[in-house]
């Protein structure tokens, strides 16, 4: 790690903090300047009296200037003392409760989609132009065209409710019963993976085909390496870089809220579903917390990928910020 690399990393981290700050201000403003969003009125119940609303406003500090409220909100967020307006429960505790569920979904799905994408992408590239390649292409395109919540709902109905093979949604903790944990996650993993398998296998296929035409592959063949060795050591290795990049970014996004639909359809009660339910009640503290949580993962994985790229490729370091 030389000094140029260190400078790049520091610059990248600083811009990351600035972006997170902007995200927090934006979310805060969206829910505070919205008409009909006054939390005091909502908390006072169905038929609020003016005095009740005033009392709540004072108690929770809604009458203070916006920037004071913002600073207090952020203090609560970082000290883990944020309280939901709607349920009066501690927000960080709720997120901690949902996190293992979201992580189980994300890690399992990420492994599944990567394994299938590599296998199918490689197979497709080797059979390029043949019937099996076309068939896989069609499948991949259908996969990226289906809404995840639709295929998820159909899975729950046909394989869960009707056939009774899989549970009808829900989640069982790993420590309680590992087998049940696995069984409850098979359908969510599959539903979430379909889209990514479609994307990644297509990207990998075209990258492999492109790499096969490179001079160094021709050289490797010419020097007498076996086809298998050329394929695994020279072609696949280089073709994997783009989808590994995507993998990092998408994994961050899935933890950071992209799984909100999958969690909702399969009733996994993860972080995403918590956010979806809080949004329905315009409950600012959990929305704030989950958005920041999600943005943090997205930004972190973006930065990690950038720094890894810079470590591998010195040209990016010189370009600095404009590399993105």
């Amino acid at each position: 790690m030389n000094s140029a690399m260190a400078r790049f990393a520091v610059r990248r981290l600083l811009s990351m903090l600035l972006v997170l700050f902007a995200v927090s201000v934006l979310v805060f403003l969206i829910f505070n300047v919205m008409p009909n969003g006054d939390p005091a009125v909502r908390m006072a119940g169905k038929i609020p009296t003016e005095t009740q609303v005033e009392a709540i406003r004072e108690e929770w500090g809604f009458d203070e200037p916006l920037y004071v409220q913002y600073v207090r909100t952020m203090e609560q967020l970082f000290s883990g003392e944020m309280i939901s307006y709607a349920t009066r429960q501690n927000v960080s505790e709720e997120i901690w409760k949902g996190l293992p569920r979201t992580l189980s979904l994300a890690v399992g799905a990420a492994l599944i989609w990567m394994a299938f994408a590599i296998a199918l992408g490689l197979y497709s590239a080797l059979r390029a132009g043949r019937l099996s390649d076309r068939f896989l292409t069609v499948l991949a395109l259908i996969g990226i065209s289906m809404p995840v919540f639709w295929i998820g709902a159909l899975m729950v109905y046909y394989l869960g409710y009707k056939a009774g093979i899989f549970p009808n949604g829900g989640y069982v903790e790993f420590t309680v019963n590992p087998l049940e944990w696995l069984w409850h996650l098979v359908l969510p993993w599959t539903a979430l993976s379909i889209l990514f398998i479609g994307f990644y296998s297509r990207v990998l296929r075209s990258d492999i085909l492109e790499t096969m035409g490179e001079d160094y592959v021709r050289t490797a063949r010419a020097k007498g390496l076996s086809e298998r060795r050329v394929l695994l050591k020279h072609v696949l290795r280089n073709s994997l870089i783009p989808i590994v990049t995507l993998w990092g970014l998408d994994f961050g996004a899935v933890i950071g809220g992209a799984a909100i639909l999958t969690e909702t359809v399969f009733d996994l009660q993860g972080v995403g579903q918590y956010a979806a339910e809080s949004i329905k009640g315009l409950d600012l503290p959990p929305i704030m917390a989950v958005t920041m949580f999600g943005a943090f993962f997205i930004v972190t994985f973006n930065a990690l990928v950038d720094i890894a790229y810079a470590a591998l490729d010195p040209r990016i370091r010189l370009e600095g910020r404009s590399s993105r």
Binding site: I30, N36, G37, A258, I260, K280, A295, I298
Partner: peptide, 21 residues
């Protein structure tokens, strides 16, 4: 900044808030 927002979360948050008001 737009990139950093969790897409669906941002969309749902904006959509719900705007649909009400």
């Amino acid at each position: 900044v737009i990139w950093a927002f969790p897409v669906i979360l941002l969309g749902v948050a904006l959509g719900t808030a705007l649909a009400l008001g």
